[in-house]
């Protein structure tokens, strides 16, 4: 564990807490893409298959349980909870996210570390996470004004993977034979997808104005 990875995990955890706060405090999930939440639930379920088989550390297991349970809970909330489900922007959240799942499956079958059940599922989860934010970014552009908590949620979600890239650079220089091109490549694409969001987020923060994404 290094400081970059801890910062990344804490930023990721914080983004989940901000999202939960937004849904709980405003009793609304307007501006939140259910499709991105479903993709993230799938990412965690396919990546943490080893939750019950390999014990790495208490921290590792606790964080996996937190990420799986929070993402599933949010999907359930947005789909079935009588109050919040009505506030979901169903007609704006139209990204065909099953295409992202299909492409990730093909990529995982073609590019993986070892052709084993767990490794292919792990690669799938890495590729899927890289593009999981797309429905959310499209929804933000369509829904015009973005409420603060939603903007902060997306910001921290993007920042966590940037910390992970620093973590991979750090591990590359401190650990021998540490080359994980799948994580690096996907992590780079994932962070790059946030580039324009980060730009508009910074501009809105500098001008102390409402976050506005160009349509």
């Amino acid at each position: 564990m290094n400081i970059f990875r801890l910062a990344g995990d804490m930023t990721h955890l914080f983004s989940v807490l901000v999202l939960l706060l937004k849904i709980y405090a405003t009793k609304s999930c307007s501006g939140i893409s259910l499709k991105t939440q479903e993709l993230y639930a799938l990412v965690f379920l396919t990546r943490y298959l080893d939750l019950f088989t390999d014990f790495i550390s208490v921290y590792n297991s606790v964080m996996k349980v937190v990420f799986i349970s929070s993402s599933v809970a949010i999907v359930w909330c947005m789909r079935y909870h009588p109050l919040t489900r009505r506030t979901y922007d169903k007609d704006l959240d139209t990204f065909r996210h099953y295409i992202l799942v299909g492409v990730s499956i093909i990529l995982a079958l073609l590019f993986h570390d070892r052709f084993t059940f767990r490794e292919v599922f792990w690669a799938f989860s890495i590729y899927l996470e890289a593009v999981a934010i797309l429905p959310q970014l499209v929804l933000l552009q369509r829904s015009g004004n973005v409420d603060n908590l939603t903007g902060q949620y997306v910001f921290f979600l993007g920042a966590y993977r940037a910390f992970y890239i620093l973590n991979w650079i750090y591990r590359y220089f401190t650990e021998n034979h540490y080359s994980r091109w799948i994580s690096w490549l996907a992590g780079f694409v994932q962070t790059a997808l946030y580039a324009d969001f980060f730009y508009y987020y910074f501009v809105s923060w500098k001008n102390n104005a409402k976050l506005q994404l160009p349509a």
Binding site: H12, D50, N60, M63, W122, W168, R171, E175, Y178, S183
Partner: peptide, 10 residues
Amino acid sequence: AKESSVKDEL
């Protein structure tokens, strides 16, 4: 040596 795989990451 213990494979320092990225799999010990979240």
